[in-house]
């Protein structure tokens, strides 16, 4: 791994890197391209990569025929609602664990983590039956609660690792200035750890947006987010590729952008602070 690279070597490594990275990215590129083709062109051989008649009719059809916006709205509500709810519960808890630890804090943190490791199928049956009996199947509120609980351990963990980096002197100074715990959190801790809170929020929006076990099993139409909506394209095979691509592009675009923006913080959140 020589540090001083010749230009030739650098160019060849660059070519190699672009080749492989391009291959990884290709399915997404292909999906986006296909979404701008007519159904006929999407299906034709040989495939066209750039030079075809670009059209946006698929995007129009997706909305008019299948009420895309309704599902997109559900995704926003489920991902946003569950994340905000989780933050509300997690910020005070993470404050306590970072700044007022007890002998049991470490054990509690690891226990919370272990709840995240329980496979959802292990509780599918009772959750399904409970939701059925309480009329929560295919309801937004039911899913918001479920997604919130599912991600709560990650939210607490991420916030905990961010809060740990705030010098405790500053919180003590607030305390000496007469601030109660609530005010200490609102006026000092939260503004100081805003970047950390923001990246926690983003990661959890991503996870909740893409969650596809509970949403597939517990929603059908009213509360169905984009994951469920896209899954409905799986049955009439072959005929709606361009529309499938258009719907898919719309479904992943916001999250892809959020993901790209928060990629540096993702590692810490995804590994519970084990890799920074």
């Amino acid at each position: 791994m020589a540090r001083k690279q010749t230009l030739t070597k650098r160019i060849s490594v660059t070519a190699l890197a672009w080749l492989f990275s391009g291959a990884i990215f290709f399915p997404i590129y292909w999906m986006v391209i296909t979404s701008f083709k007519t159904e006929l062109a999407a299906f034709s051989t040989p495939p066209t990569f750039l030079f075809f008649d670009w059209t946006i009719e698929n995007y129009e059809t997706v909305q008019t025929r299948s009420n895309y916006l309704h599902h997109a709205m559900n995704s926003v509500i489920l991902a946003g609602g569950s994340t905000l709810l989780a933050l509300l519960i997690a910020i005070p808890a993470a404050w306590a664990m970072a700044f007022a630890p007890t002998d049991r804090t470490r054990g509690t943190l690891l226990w919370m983590l272990s709840t995240k490791m329980m496979p959802p199928v292990g509780v599918l049956v009772p959750i399904y039956l409970i939701y059925r009996d309480f009329g929560l199947l295919d309801s937004r509120i039911g899913l918001v609660i479920l997604l919130c609980l599912g991600n709560l351990p990650i939210v607490i963990w991420m916030l905990f690792t961010y809060f740990k980096e705030i010098p405790k002197d500053i919180l003590e100074a607030a305390r000496m200035d007469g601030a109660t715990v609530t005010k200490e959190i609102i006026y000092v801790l939260a503004p100081m750890s805003l970047p950390g809170i923001a990246s926690t929020l983003l990661l959890n929006v991503i996870l909740a947006w893409n969650e596809a076990f509970w949403t597939l099993n517990l929603t059908t139409s009213d509360a169905a987010p984009l994951t469920t909506f896209i899954a409905s394209y799986s049955s009439p095979e072959g005929l709606f590729w361009a529309k499938l691509s258009a719907a898919s592009t719309l479904a992943i675009a916001p999250i892809l952008i959020i993901g790209w923006l928060s990629q540096r913080q993702l590692v810490r959140g995804l590994t519970f602070g084990a890799v920074k």
């Binding site: 010098p167 002197d169 500053i170 100074a173 000496m176 200035d177």
Partner: peptide, 10 residues
């Protein structure tokens, strides 16, 4: 009131 070694300014 207290003055900290690190100043602990907000």
């Amino acid at each position: 009131s207290m003055v900290f070694q690190s100043y602990a300014l907000y």
